[in-house]
């Protein structure tokens, strides 16, 4: 590809990255802001980090959110990949509808529905009910990305492997899986993002005493969302990034399409 035209594209990409990072920059900078308001720069302080480390409720909410998001993205990616594969390989009627509807249906209806459902089953609400609900709305996102990756893929490779005597499972593990890995990774990232930031469905499926970070933060809306929230957001981002790098070191190539 010509370098010249890449330069124009890189400039556009740079602007898009700037668009993505401008608000984040403000989020991080304002976590050091010496004002309760989260709206204008006053002066540098570490006050909000001190407040945060003394705030047991906020920290445990963040811990809950992280654990729920990790479990959710794991299971939703597994099930969503299967759904994406199935939709690509077979002519199915019900599955495509069931994959799309959780994305289309208003969150508030889904949240209330799940609440009524869990109450009817006499299921104690808490982390498990939140996680089950999150998985339900994340599967579709993963399935759609995985299918988009598969569409137009060269089937010849898989068939060649089968001709050489590979079992269906081995053909999948050695050929298909590495080929669709970028789609799976993209889906997992989306599932994690959706889960860690969800408010509406979490609100209705959370039980007494089970708080996640978005629930904690939304309840602050009325009084003031203080820079303590910027502080926990900044730290959570760092922590997640660190987790991913450790995972990358422990299992090199897990993220790559070989």
């Amino acid at each position: 590809m010509h370098f010249k035209q890449n330069k124009v594209l890189w400039a556009i990409a740079g602007l898009v990255y700037a668009f993505l990072y401008l608000p984040l920059l403000i989020v991080v900078i304002y976590s050091f802001n010496d004002s309760r308001l989260n709206a204008e720069w006053v002066g540098f302080t570490l006050h909000w980090y001190h407040v945060l480390f003394a705030d047991e409720q906020m920290l445990s909410a963040a811990r809950n959110s992280l654990v729920i998001a990790l479990i959710t993205s794991g299971i939703a990616t597994f099930l969503g990949t299967m759904a994406g594969l199935a939709m690509y390989k077979y002519k199915l009627r019900l599955l495509p509808v069931l994959v799309l509807t959780p994305i289309a249906i208003p969150e508030i209806l889904m949240g209330l529905s799940l609440l009524v459902f869990f109450v009817t089953l006499n299921f104690t609400m808490g982390f498990v009910s939140i996680t089950l609900a999150h998985i339900a709305f994340c599967i579709g996102f993963v399935a759609i990305v995985v299918r988009a990756r598969l569409q137009g893929m060269d089937e010849a490779l898989v068939e060649a492997a089968r001709d050489l005597g590979a079992t269906p499972f081995n053909a999948f593990r050695l050929i298909t899986l590495p080929l669709i890995m970028p789609g799976i990774v993209a889906g997992a990232l989306m599932a994690f993002t959706l889960s860690i930031d969800d408010f509406v469905i979490t609100y209705f499926t959370a039980g007494a005493g089970a708080t996640t970070l978005p629930l904690q933060i939304y309840s602050m809306l009325k009084i003031a969302v203080t820079p303590e929230v910027n502080a926990i957001s900044s730290l959570l981002m760092l922590l997640t990034l660190a987790l991913i790098f450790i995972a990358g070191k422990l299992a090199p190539g897990a993220l790559h399409a070989e």
Binding site: V116, M125, Y203, A208, Y218
Partner: peptide, 18 residues
């Protein structure tokens, strides 16, 4: 546990949250 609006609380309790 907190709610951000009276109506959120009512909807949740109406649906049977315990």
């Amino acid at each position: 546990d907190y709610y951000g609006a009276m109506e959120e609380m009512l909807a949740k309790l109406s649906a049977g949250a315990k």
